[in-house]
Amino acid sequence: MSIWERFERINPRFIFLLMLFVLITPMIRPIGLPVYITPLTQALYDWVEDLPPGSVVLFDSAFAPGSASEIEPTMRALLHHLFQNDHKVVMMAQWELGAMHSSTVLDELAAEYGKEYGVDYANVGWRAGSENWFIGLRDDFIGGMVGVDMSGNDLTEMPLTRDLAAVRPEYFAGVVCFASGNPGVDDWVTYNPNMPLFVQATAVQVPTYMRFVETRQIEALLSGQAGGAQYEQLVGQLGEASRLMDPQGAGHLLIITLMILGNIAFIVNSKKRAAK
């Protein structure tokens, strides 16, 4: 059996091992690949820059901790940006585990900037009821949240939330949806199309959401970990995403190399089989 024949029938476990090596090496010895800012990431940055001081931005955590590596860096960088510019953040969640995960991030960043709970930020969490609940928020935010935040505090007693009557542009400057599936972006586009929508999605979702970008239903779209790295660069707070761009680049290169070699093996072996 020639080397190309062996290569074509390679055990996938060897590929897994190779991938592990390629991902770990740049973590130990960083290469320092450059990060290029895309217009869709720049759009989110520019929007935050243009916001009047004290604007209330709604965060929607529609992801589970599994995909946090792709989504959390943008959440952190964006919180840096918003708190630096003295804006206020209200966090809600369409996924129950997203609520738990994001509260850790929000509390950490708010403590770093000395922000006060209920005045500068609030976390209302997740409620059961899926689409029915979500549609209800369009008319009545506090009622839809059954009047309390994630820890049971009365929303009508907190200065930040008591006047937030509904999830509408009159009350929120915009919504940033951190999405890794459904429910998520589709619900905003379908049930609350008037809210300015900004999205950080896992990379695999980006091709699907491009159709909303073209029609201006999404104002900015950040793609996976690369989006996080770009926003970190823009804000000047280099974090996990920037550090992990090297392994990501190396992983992609490995896949491309495997594709090329696999095709060479395929062509060589096809010719051999045809000759026989």
Partner: peptide
């Protein structure tokens, strides 16, 4: 829970490599 969840998600990196190697052929 979080690291366990992330570990399962990161399996995608390995599976996508073997899936891409097998399926992206100039057939």
């Amino acid at each position: 829970l979080q690291p366990a969840d992330r570990t399962m998600f990161s399996l995608l990196a390995f599976y996508i490599a073997s899936a891409a190697y097998r399926s992206f052929r100039m057939r």
